[in-house]
Design a protein around this nucleic acid. Structure first.
Length: 595
RNA sequence: GGCCGCGUAGCUCAGGGGAUAGAGCAACUGCCUUCUAAGCAGUCGGUCGCACGUUCGAUUCGUGCCGCGGUCACCA
């Protein structure tokens, strides 16, 4: 229990004795004291006045007196209007911070399955997918750090009409181009090769539509009759019937894509515990539809199609099985949800998917609840905003995307240029340099994507490169490198006695500020999990770095005035470094020893 | 049109019933013979989209309106 909760509970328990009535815990508002007031913690008494039956000053005084007399960590209080400002002994903060060790909060027995990435195998990964990957990985890290048992799952969308489109285009216009024999350097990476034919398909499709309209067809007719589309549809049928040639082509092209994805995942530093493939799961869910029909959750229309009526839940009727008995998107998701539960018996199932699918996941959760699945209440759609360009939405089909591989390369390049300009690492080996540029470039990129509230959309202007100064990943990384530099220079610093402080040690204002920031680590970690918001942790890492830099400017460390002061400052330096490292490790950002 | 999300400084974003609304970028001013200046300190910049309501107190909660985005497929 942290000091905020401790005081809150203490006041609640003493309340009847002090004022003769009970009080709810959430009525007791505890905040950090704003900078310009004296005190560490502030209790707002206004909400309590009805219960205390006294004016604000008297109520505050009663509580203040009680706390000073009954909590050994509290040294004094002052009252300004209805605010009770409480001062805490320095020892309390210091001892807590210096002894804070573990990075993982109390282990829990719950299992959380987090599905993210979930790419289509017809095109390379773009910036929107990068946001998904980075958010999913960070969220998983946060759950882990909060003591949950976490499974990272990737549901690869490897079949369907869109996959057949690239296949058809490659067949018709590919001339046998492969990642091995291609002259297009970019297409050596297989996902780009396949993506090229996805774009190619769209080009020809549009041209054919135009031609058909020229020949007198209506737009609707033309869109349905374009030969290349018919070819894709025919290929899908062949695929579903297990046609050997088609399956072989599908396997070949998917293998190219997977090889490419592996490289990008590795570059992004994300990983998965379990891969699901839609080609294996797309037939699942039909049994559940049968089950739902018997339970009366679903109903059958005259044409044989199966529906669910969600009008009572404020939604519409939704198709779950076509009249010809084939499944739709949601049918597969029903089946896959069950499959995940069979595999992992998860308590929570989180889907990291863009907010354009809010409606779909609302429906999915309702269906699972109505089917009475034990994990249904634990389904959660982690909905995040799109990454838009100044020109609008990114569309792979039309080639208007910020490619992930390009962007990563750009970021590393920017890191390289700026680092070399500073000339601090001229003694690095080539390997060390490469590693550092990658750490900084990816740090900047991931921080940029994570610092924004997930549900907000991000506008990305490719013309403006991602910054390396200010509220950025490299700023925090730089601070970490600073702490490392100090610690390298200090010799036999970290004595393991943590009680070395004398009672009357006077904390410098910047020391105290830093200590109080470091104190909040586990509070923030817990909050970022509860609110499912990696930005909280990112924001905090910045606050730590910012506060340390101020401390660094104000307080000499290695040349401190006394040995005691030096020890404390080195400890704070060490704690700052480890806190930054922990935060960044959780969300998947590396940290350099020097930069 | 129905439903969902968003609207805070010139720009990008924090805050989320409580005291004087905070950062970064941009612009301007100082600080490297001292532990990494990718830093620190400062100046400039706000009717928290608009209106009404609830409250001791609203930028925060509610309702309505306006603006932007998404969605309402037998696509995924």
């Amino acid at each position: 229990m942290n000091i905020f909760q401790e005081i809150q509970t203490q006041v609640q328990q003493a309340f009847p004795a002090l004022f003769g009535s009970e009080v709810e815990l959430n009525k007791i508002t505890i905040n950090e004291t704003p900078k310009d007031f004296i005190g560490d913690i502030t209790l707002v008494v206004f909400p309590l006045l009805k219960l205390t039956k006294k004016n604000p000053e008297e109520s505050a005084k009663t509580i203040g007196e009680f706390l000073v007399n009954n909590n050994k960590n509290i040294t004094a209080y002052n009252i300004i209007k209805g605010f009770l400002n409480i001062e805490i002994y320095n020892d309390y903060w210091i001892n807590y911070v210096l002894n804070q060790e573990s990075g993982i909060l109390n282990p829990k027995s719950e299992t959380v399955l987090i599905e993210y990435a979930s790419p289509n195998t017809n095109k390379p990964i773009h910036l929107g997918h990068v946001r998904n990957n980075v958010l999913g990985y960070a969220l998983a890290g946060i759950y882990k750090a909060n003591g949950y048992n976490v499974i990272k799952a990737n549901l690869t969308n490897d079949r369907g009409i869109h996959i057949c489109k690239s296949m058809v285009a490659w067949q018709q216009f590919g001339n046998g181009e492969t990642p091995e024999n291609t002259t297009d350097l970019k297409c050596r990476k297989g996902d780009h090769l396949v993506g090229k034919y996805y774009v190619e398909f769209d080009k020809h499709y549009k041209q054919q539509i135009a031609d058909l309209i020229e020949q007198g067809k209506t737009k609707e007719e033309a869109e349905k009759q374009a030969p290349i589309l018919l070819a894709a549809q025919e290929m899908l049928l062949k695929w579903e019937n297990g046609d050997e040639e088609t399956i072989a082509l599908w396997k070949k092209m998917n293998a190219w894509v997977y090889a490419g994805f592996d490289i990008t995942y590795k570059n992004l530093g994300v990983d998965f515990d379990k891969f699901y493939y839609e080609s294996n799961t797309y037939l699942l869910g039909k049994n559940s539809v049968e089950d739902g029909l018997q339970k009366g959750v679903f109903f059958k229309k005259e044409d044989g199609s199966v529906w669910i009526d969600l009008t009572e839940d404020g939604l519409d009727q939704k198709l779950v099985l076509r009249a010809d008995g084939t499944s739709v998107y949601i049918t597969q998701d029903i089946g896959t949800a069950d499959l995940k539960y069979d595999d992992f018996k998860m308590d929570q199932s989180i889907y990291v998917v863009g907010n354009e699918q809010d409606y779909h996941f609302k429906v999915l959760k309702l269906i699972m609840q109505k089917l009475g699945r034990p994990y249904a209440d634990g389904i959660h759609h982690f909905s995040y905003g799109m990454v838009d360009l100044p020109s609008g939405k990114m569309k792979s089909r039309e080639g208007t995307v910020v490619d992930a591989d390009d962007l990563i390369a750009d970021m590393i390049n920017i890191a390289k240029e700026q680092t070399e300009a500073l000339g601090k690492i001229d003694d690095f080996t080539e390997d060390e340099k490469t590693a550092l540029f990658r750490t900084i470039g990816l740090g900047a990129l991931k921080f940029f994507l994570l610092r924004v509230d997930p549900k907000k959309r991000i506008l990305f202007d490719p013309k403006e490169s991602i910054d390396l100064h200010g509220f950025t990943g490299p700023f925090v990384q730089y601070t970490y490198a600073r702490t490392r530099s100090i610690l390298r220079k200090a010799e036999n610093i970290i004595s393991h006695d943590s009680q070395f402080m004398t009672q009357d040690y006077q904390l410098h204002a910047s020391e105290k500020e830093l200590i109080k920031v470091l104190y909040k680590y586990s509070i923030v970690l817990e909050e970022s999990c509860k609110e499912m918001n990696p930005a909280k942790l990112i924001d905090y890492s910045y606050e730590v770095a910012k506060t340390y830099n101020k401390f660094y400017n104000d307080c000499p460390i290695l040349v401190a005035e006394t040995e005691e002061q030096k020890k404390i400052r080195l400890h704070l330096t060490q704690q700052t470094g480890s806190t930054i490292k922990k935060c960044f490790a959780i969300v998947g950002i590396d940290v350099p020893e020097r930069m």
